[in-house]
Simulated scan of single mutants.
Amino acid sequence: MKIIGKITDLRVARTQKLLTMALLTLLCEQGQLFSNITVNEICDKAMVHRTTFYKHFEDKFALLSSTLTSLLQDYLQMNVEDRLRQPMQSIATILSGNVLERMVQNQKKDEGFKHFFRKYIEEIFKQDFMELKNRGKQFSLPVELAVEFHSGVISLLVNWWIHHFEENITAEQMDEYYYLLVNEKILLK
Rank of each mutant, 00 (worst) to 15 (best):
Thr15Ser: 00
Gln16Ser: 11
Leu18Tyr: 01
Leu19Met: 10
Thr20Cys: 05
Met21Lys: 14
Ala22Pro: 11
Leu24Gly: 07
Leu26Thr: 03
Cys28Val: 13
Leu33Ser: 12
Asn36Glu: 15
Ile37Gly: 06
Thr38Met: 07
Glu41Cys: 04
Glu41Val: 06
Glu41Leu: 08
His49Val: 03
Thr52Lys: 09
Thr52Ser: 14
His56Asp: 05
Phe57Trp: 00
Asp59Ala: 12
Ser65Thr: 12
Ser66Glu: 11
Gln73His: 13
Asp74Tyr: 08
Leu76Ile: 07
Asp82Val: 09
Leu84Asn: 05
Gln86Asn: 13
Pro87Lys: 05
Pro87Glu: 08
Gln89Val: 04
Ile91Gln: 02
Leu95Val: 10
Ser96Lys: 14
Glu101Val: 05
Arg102Trp: 11
Gln107Thr: 00
Lys109Asn: 15
Lys109Arg: 13
Lys119Gly: 15
Glu122His: 03
Ile124Thr: 08
Lys126Asp: 12
Phe129Glu: 04
Phe129Thr: 02
Arg135Glu: 13
Gln138Pro: 02
Gly152Ser: 04
Leu156Met: 14
Trp160Ile: 07
Ile162Thr: 11
Ile169Gln: 09
Ile169Ala: 11
Met174Ile: 00
Asp175Cys: 08
Asp175Trp: 03
Leu180Phe: 08
Val182Asn: 01
Asn183Met: 01
Ile186Gln: 01
Ile186Thr: 11
Lys189Val: 04
Lys189Ser: 10
